[in-house]
Write a protein that binds this DNA or RNA. Sequence first.
DNA 1: TTGTATGCGTTATCAC
DNA 2: GTGATAACGCATACAA
Lengths: 349, 349
Amino acid sequence: MTHPNPVPVPTLRDVAEAAGVHTATASRALNPKTRQQISAETARRVMRAAQALGYQPNSAARSLKTARSSTVGLVIPDLTNPLFPPIVRGVESVLESDGYNVWIVNTDNDEERERAKIESLRSRQVEGLIIATARLEHPLLGQLHEQGVTMVLINRQVDNLRIPAVTGDDATGVAAAVRHLADLGHTRIAHLSGPLSTSTGRVRSRAFRHAVRDLGLPGDLMVECGHWSEADGAAAMRALLARTTDFTAVVAGNDPIALGCYDVFAERGLSCPHDVSVIGFNDMPFLDKLRPPLTTVAVPHHELGAEAARMLLNCIDEPDRAARSVLLPASLVVRGSTAAPRATVLPEP
Amino acid sequence: MTHPNPVPVPTLRDVAEAAGVHTATASRALNPKTRQQISAETARRVMRAAQALGYQPNSAARSLKTARSSTVGLVIPDLTNPLFPPIVRGVESVLESDGYNVWIVNTDNDEERERAKIESLRSRQVEGLIIATARLEHPLLGQLHEQGVTMVLINRQVDNLRIPAVTGDDATGVAAAVRHLADLGHTRIAHLSGPLSTSTGRVRSRAFRHAVRDLGLPGDLMVECGHWSEADGAAAMRALLARTTDFTAVVAGNDPIALGCYDVFAERGLSCPHDVSVIGFNDMPFLDKLRPPLTTVAVPHHELGAEAARMLLNCIDEPDRAARSVLLPASLVVRGSTAAPRATVLPEP
DNA sequence: TTGTATGCGTTATCAC
DNA sequence: GTGATAACGCATACAA
């Protein structure tokens, strides 16, 4: 139940009256940037009055007047995907110390939803957008760019348009994964890629092809997952097994896909890493508690968010600066899901 | 880089001019609730103009005029805690279909931060607050309530004030956990509680005491964790083992605390569930992939958020309605971390 | 140092 | 059915 006598929200005018000054004076006294224009005594009186009344500036009025919202929009597919909360916190950590607030929206990877959410963000006069959805087809981005919307992309490079982006160095991460397996003695390594309609799916898939080719290994062991999910990972692994059993290691497009592999191994009585090694991607929480603990590629999600936020601030401050893209290093985290293949013939010296 | 010629954002005035009508008419044409007052022909013309210009209403101006923000604030401790994303999505699923938007803030369980965040929310004229932080001491809540702030609590009951709340039925969940262990033959069951400064810590701890007492089991095997974390769970388990080894099962205050137990078992060479059974709380993602898969109490987090949102809408619509509290059922999810104790003397018939 | 006046973009209340 | 006008709360250019 709300309070029986809902206190009317005090305005600047109330504060001014209580302090016996004009609203303009009160406004200056309350704003740190203009407080110096005011006598210390008056400033103190105004601030006490504001405190006493529980005054909070009406941000709608302020942004209407100043044409600034001190708000940026953060567009992600789905908060329940453990990738994104660290990114969100990274963004916030930078933006909040600069006086900005962050408005988060989920798109569920639905184009219509995404459009609607971004419209609503724009109608809120956000000063910039950080977009962390990874679909490849994206007419919307082009439109926004045309309209001069300030934005930064996370985990996605758009080739055509020059939009600043910050991404994890997926290619190096995949290469490290493949090299690790090769070093262990694996020669037939499969890749269960994410959807090739996503930029990350495409980048990692291509990196895998390059990596195996560079090592002189076969590059035909590839299956595309319909989604980045455990279920689709399992389906892809079943499809691969139906085609061939002549492989000893798998590089999964992400961690849930790797978990899908675990499920199929359990079904088929295969032992990991004994029969087959698996490497995931992203280093989700609690992977070290799995059976076996999953070897994976760690992406600095928090730092991805923080760096995107810094970039966005740059873009807001210097609208004419050329777009830059930043690549953050990914690193292999070796755990228990990778080992030497069972019947390896070690390469002759 | 932003567009070289940043298009000035079109206002209602621009739309009106383009359509050859007055702004008032344009406003009426664009608002579905007033569109009927306008001739169909004019309405169409205005809407086409708006479309063509890419017009988005300025929400600051609108909420200044209407004194409504169509926004509610959602206050949580930390998005990276996997408990909260489902709650957030639950809240959003209800609120968005009602035309509201949700503003999320993280408090990191810091009182000062929480106060600042809520102030910033209020200055944004949010129409209500959903608060999902679980500290027990909370002068702030009292103040907000005094000021007539509409709010709903998640996972926390405040005794004094009559503030609506929606919580999981922790007590029943804990009781089910204890009964499950007793049914397996355990007689000496320990509890590693969360911090007793949190309402959930206190509720679950008390429920545990009641449950063991009702079964005639000893109630002295309790340790309080400093935080709801894996590290603190491990510390508590070490403390318990230093005191006694005369127990065969543990009910952890939450899942990370249970994982802390796993860590200590690994250190000491104890086998779970062979030497000791463990039950967690919350049913975080991927618990089924652990070694062993963790038996836990599932709380309907999405539904918790959805129900809180429904309640908040009620409160906004009918400010004078009495506060209600809702308890959502929790359920035991039996997995591999619980089994009969090794050397059980089964009770005589 | 302080007060006066104005307008941000929108909607509500008038009058026509 | 449409237009004119005012006002929401605040910040700022200008006057004093």
